[in-house]
Design a protein around this nucleic acid. Structure first.
Lengths: 150, 150
DNA sequence: TTATATTAAGATAAAATACTCTTAATACTT
DNA sequence: AAGTATTAAGAGTATTTTATCTTAATATAA
């Protein structure tokens, strides 16, 4: 698994929020129900995104979370870096701490290229674009296998 | 981290074995010392590779492990699949069990492409090629940071 | 046949990750 | 001011991954 579960949950929630036209706060309960993610766990993850200033939160009635910036200005990579950190895109595939340009591991160059592709893919897609692809025609963001039956 | 530690250890050991010209059995103690990996843990990992018929093992004095096939006929991918399984190359980046051609998640197509690149990169490099790049000029397979001082 | 070298296997322990529960803090509503 | 809805924070539990320890099995050699 390339991304941690926390990161995946954060991404799903962010895309979901981006798909909301209205600029209201959405409760985490709402998110956790719709996305089928544990409420408490999701709360923790979203706290990280709030600290990273990707989300804005508000307590009390009518509170919740929402994107802190317009959806077209937040990339997939922004969310990933906030939760999984940059190490994910810099580590050696063979786990060698000394691996680098000066002392490349046998796979260094290939891996470097692949990581750059990964980074650019993530940096070049915004939450807005992702939200367009989310809906009945495309995949749901819920993990429920038989959502229509429930 | 894309690959598990078990997998990384298995890869390092396989490349190391590929770099040996002589077709002798190498003891796991030898491997674990040279690669700086816990002996017992490495033993477990290599057992998996032996079951997968990538390695051949022999007990008793002069025993050890060696590649079961010529190094040019074993790919990086073979080793990865034996340890981390094929799921690694098929799962949805957003962890959605329903994601697929029929019901793609917002990132499905990009991710699919990236995984194919990853697969072909891994399928197109053999242990022999990797072993050529291993040595003083290139990176060591040991994780020791200051090997020369020790 | 006894001692020794080695891998195999199983049981346990430690660490990391994922998840849950409880309480606190904050803000709204009446 | 009191009650309620909500996020924040901290502590605790469970699961998975990584690592270690112990014993068993197998093969060699003297």
């Amino acid at each position: 698994m390339i991304l941690s579960k926390s990161c995946i949950y954060g991404l799903r929630a962010s895309v979901y929020l981006a798909s909301k036209k209205k600029d209201d706060f959405i409760t985490i309960k709402n998110l956790s129900d719709d996305l089928n993610i544990s409420f408490h766990f999701l709360t923790k993850v979203l706290q990280q995104l709030t600290k990273a200033e990707i989300l804005e939160s508000y307590k009390g009635p009518n509170g919740g979370v929402k994107l802190a910036k317009p959806a077209h200005s937040v990339t997939f990579l922004d969310v990933v870096l906030s939760i999984d950190g940059k190490y994910m895109l810099s580590e050696c595939v063979l786990g060698l701490p000394v691996c680098g340009e000066l002392n490349p591991c046998p796979l260094h160059d290939e891996w470097h290229q692949l990581k750059e592709n990964l980074r650019s893919m993530m940096a070049n897609i915004t939450l807005e674009e992702l939200s367009f692809r989310h809906g009945p025609k495309h995949g749901s963001l819920s993990a429920k296998r038989f959502a229509s039956r429930v």
